[in-house]
Structures are given as structure tokens and as C-alpha cells.
Design a protein around this nucleic acid. Structure first.
Length: 435
RNA sequence: GGAGGGAUGGCCGAGUGGACGAAGGCGACGGUCUUGAAAACCGUUGUGGCGGCAACGUCACCGGGGGUUCGAAUCCCUCUCCCUCCGCCA
């Protein structure tokens, strides 16, 4: 959510920024609702002030009435009745105006929730992903003396990925990891969590994987990704599409006291996505599936530090690639590919020689105060000062089935076996090859 | 799932439909006293909206929402959460 004051004071700037994002949002409606809301508010408050004053008088009058006698009593009584009648009418007007205010506020809020975040000035302009910018590439693609196979061939050959049974159990885009495949995933999760906790300073979190609807709005998943989440209608609970959702909401409606920031969290969670919007894309293998595991990094920071924190988080994700010894590159999203929440975003991609493509294994965003405003997460800069919105950042560290793809395809040997990356061997019972 | 009990400021805790943004206490902050500290005493001590350059004014907020009333922390309905007991359960 953007700052309403900012929209009010710089409407042209906001509209220009939205043009760069190649999206649209109901800015004029927002301005109109805002104007009407403030007008109505002034009116109802004046009426309330009047009612408060008269009510006070009536209290005093009633006490006098108890002692009064004869004509004096009657005079007071009729005065009281007059006031009561006037206040009854004032009450009705207040009620009518406030109904209208509720209505306008609901529409204003709904419109505000539709507006995406605005891009940071350092974001390159561009219409879509074709105009993203490769910032750097690290690591040399391995030279094969045989034709490297894609993971959808290697997996079944080794008996570590079972596509047919996944489909039998849960339908298309589901899969089963078995034996060393399942173990490889568990090893990766453990190793990545240990890395971020021990060397990058994050605190491990085990959050709920089902969340209330508020959380989806707070993290900015709704309204845009409504179609893409699984949910339980009976209890109105939503399966998390990423641990970013519960992590964002960890400090919802809180004021963090001075000295608390920055907060770094890391959580492993399953992620559930219906992938409705991507129907028909990436149908082979485990690149795009309905259920996958991910290790997610999340930061709550003071605004003036958030862009340094973003670079640091990108580095934390790259560190995973480096230690696995898999070539990767960092891509900066252009304005047209920023998504809904981010002011600035990088993707980290691993090279997959089997399917011959760069696999997005991480997406790292600075959301600035966008999520903080939606979820009402503030901090107190110093004792006695007013609370302000924090900046939030999120990034995968990393997304699992894709890292498994990259390991399988990069570490495969001519006989179809897969060498276990050195850093993972302690987590794999010491084995060196999956065969 | 069943039966009861509860939710008031940073915390504890009072509150008869009008004097209540709310007693009292604790804590925190400022001050007096003191060489310094403690104690004692005095004072301050929430958030948000709207208007205003500002001082300030005004409105809202006693778990959330609705209702009754001229007027609600107080009465009614409803939801949520917490506690106790019973049942079930990894």
C-alpha cells in the first residue's frame, strides 16, 4: 500500500510511475474517495461535538431537576425535552453521515489495496522480462564430454523422482521424491538453514503454513494472486504460497521498540501454488509444480538501510550457489517485471545444462514500506518518537526443486549417476554419488 | 465437540447509563532534596483521524462488529481470543 498523503500531494508523479510499471490503478477514484471522506468526517465531527456538549448539559440539568420544585421544575423539564428532541435529530444525521463514511472508507481501502508498489529510481525501465538486466554472472558452465540429460530423464532413471505416482496420488504437476532424491531435498534444507543461521545472522522460524485471509492481504498476495492459492473455505484459511506470508505477518500490528531492528528471519516451508495463471507453461519435470519446499529469508529494517540490506540479501542467496559450485547469474527486474509488492527486485538464476536454461532459484525484493503499511508494522526510531513504518525485504534462499534440478543436471556423469556436491555430503550420510 | 469464566491504558486493577480518556497502584520520564545514589515529595506519562504554518482545537478508541438510548466502558445481540473442567487426539 502506498502512503495516501503521498498520492494526494503528488498524483501526477504516482500516475507517471504506474505508466512505467505498465499497469493501471484507480488513482482518480482514490483521490475522490479521500476528498469525500474528509468532508464527511469534518461534518460528522462537528455534529458529535455538539452532541457531546449538549449531553453534558443534560446530565447537569437532570441533577438539578431532582431538586427542583413547582414551576421551576416544569420549566427545566420542558427544556430537557426540547434538547432531547434536538439531539434525537442530530443523532439521526450523525448516523446517516457515518454510514456513508463507512461506505466511502471501505471503497477507499479497497482501491488502495489495488495499487502496486512504485519502482525505486534505480530500476531500469522496460515493458516486460525481456528488458531485465543481467547484473553479473559467476562460474563457468561445465564442459561436458557427453550430452547432458534433463532432470526429467535422470530422475526416473535413478529412481529418485517418480512422476507417474505423483500424478496418480494428486494429479498433474505433482511428483514424488524417493530415496536419495528425498534425502537430497532434506539435506539441502538443513544445510541452507544452517548456512543462513550460522554465517548470515538469520534467526530460524517455524511458522504456520495455513494463514488467515488478513495475512494474504498484508503480505500483498491479495488481491492479485487470489486465483493462485489453495484455501479452506470452511475455516477461511489459506495454504501459504511462500513462507514470506507468515513471516511478513509475524510483526503485524506491532510497534517495534528502539534497538529491535534489524530483524533477520529464515524459515523453511512447503509452498502451495495453483499455477492457474501459468497453465500450460513448463509442464515437464519439477520446475513448476503445485507443491514445493523453499527456504525463505526475510528482513525487517529501518528505511534508510533497506537498499544496503537488499544487496546483502542477494549476496546471501548467491553464497548458496557459490558453495554448491553451480554457475549462477543475477538479474535485475525492469519496471515492467517488478511484480506487485517490490520497489526493486533481483532474481538469482542457476544454469541447468540438461534443460538448457537459466532457472530462477531466488527472487529478492525490497518492498520498502509497502507490506508494512498493509500489515501495520511500525518501529519507534528512538524513545519517545512517533512510530514509523519499517521496510521489509524477502528473498528465497533458495527454492528447492529447482536447486535439485540444477544439482542433478550439473553434477551428472556419463552413466547417469550424480555426484553429491561436497558441502552436502555431511548431510547425506557421507555418500559421494547417487546412482 | 460439551459446560462454565473472562477481555479496561506499558503492566496490575476500580468503575451506580450523564462529573469518565477513564479512580488507585506499579513502571517509565522530568524536577525538588542529596557530594552521588536511594528514599521521600511534586509533576508528566497512550494511539490514530480531521482542521491549522503553528500554538492548538476537535473527534474516535475500555477485545472486534452491530443494536437500544437524547447520551454507553456500563444494557442487549453477535464474533474473536484467553482461562478452567469434561471428551477426543499426534
Amino acid at each position: 500500500m502506498l502512503d495516501l498523503n503521498f498520492i494526494r500531494e503528488h498524483p501526477a508523479e504516482v500516475k507517471e510511475a504506474l505508466r512505467k510499471l505498465h499497469t493501471d490503478a484507480p488513482i482518480d477514484a482514490i483521490l475522490q474517495y479521500d476528498e469525500e471522506r474528509r468532508q464527511l468526517l469534518t461534518e460528522s465531527e462537528a455534529l458529535r461535538a455538539r452532541r457531546n456538549a449538549v449531553s453534558k448539559e443534560m446530565g447537569t440539568l437532570q441533577r438539578q431537576l431532582k431538586k427542583a420544585q413547582g414551576a421551576e421544575r416544569e420549566r427545566l423539564q420542558s427544556h430537557f425535552a426540547e434538547m432531547r428532541e434536538e439531539m434525537r435529530q442530530v443523532g439521526e444525521r450523525i448516523k446517516a453521515i457515518e454510514e456513508r463514511i463507512n461506505d466511502v472508507e471501505a471503497q477507499l481501502r479497497a482501491a488502495m489495496l489495488e495499487v502496486p508498489n512504485l519502482p525505486h529510481e534505480s530500476v531500469p525501465p522496460g515493458a516486460d522480462e525481456s528488458e531485465n538486466v543481467v547484473v553479473r554472472t559467476e562460474g563457468e558452465p561445465r564442459a561436458f564430454d557427453f550430452e547432458p540429460l534433463p532432470h526429467w530423464d535422470l530422475g526416473p532413471m535413478l529412481g529418485i523422482i517418480d512422476f507417474e505416482r505423483g500424478v496418480k496420488i494428486a494429479g498433474t504437476r505433482f511428483y514424488v521424491l524417493k530415496g536419495w532424491g528425498a534425502r537430497l531435498q532434506r539435506a539441502l534444507v538443513d544445510w541452507m538453514l544452517d548456512l543462513h543461521v550460522n554465517e548470515h545472522g538469520y534467526t530460524e522460524v517455524y511458522p504456520p503454513f495455513l494463514v488467515k485471509q488478513d495475512c494474504m492481504w498484508g503480505a500483498g498476495q491479495f488481491p492479485k494472486f487470489r486465483e493462485n492459492v489453495y484455501y479452506d473455505t470452511e475455516d477461511d484459511l489459506y495454504l501459504v504460497p511462500t513462507a514470506e506470508v507468515p513471516l511478513t505477518n509475524l510483526h503485524r500490528d506491532e510497534v517495534l521498540e528502539p534497538g529491535t531492528l534489524p530483524l533477520y528471519y529464515v524459515a523453511h516451508s512447503p509452498c502451495f501454488r495453483r499455477e492457474k495463471m501459468s497453465a500450460g507453461r513448463d509442464t515437464r519435470g519439477i520446475k513448476r509444480v503445485h507443491q514445493f519446499d523453499k527456504v525463505e529469508m526475510y528482513k525487517f529494517v529501518e528505511p534508510h538501510t533497506s537498499y544496503d540490506e537488499l544487496e546483502a540479501m542477494v549476496n546471501d542467496a548467491e553464497d548458496v550457489c557459490r558453495r554448491l559450485n553451480i554457475p549462477h547469474r543475477v538479474v535485475q527486474m525492469c519496471t515492467g517485471d517488478l511484480g506487485f509488492q517490490a520497489a526493486k527486485k533481483y532474481d538469482v538464476e542457476m544454469w541447468a545444462p540438461g534443460c538448457q536454461e537459466w532457472l530462477e532459484v531466488s527472487s529478492i525484493s525490497n518492498c520498502e514500506a509497502f507490506q508494512a503499511r498493509r500489515a501495520n508494522i511500525r518501529y519507534r526510531p528512538a524513545k519517545g518518537e512517533k512510530p514509523q513504518f519499517v521496510h521489509t525485504l524477502n528473498g528465497s534462499g533458495l527454492a528447492l526443486p529447482r536447486v535439485i534440478i540444477a544439482i542433478m543436471e550439473n553434477y551428472q556423469q556419463a552413466d547417469g549417476s550424480i555426484v553429491v556436491p561436497e558441502v552436502l555430503r555431511p548431510y547425506m550420510g557421507g555418500i559421494t554419488v547417487i546412482k
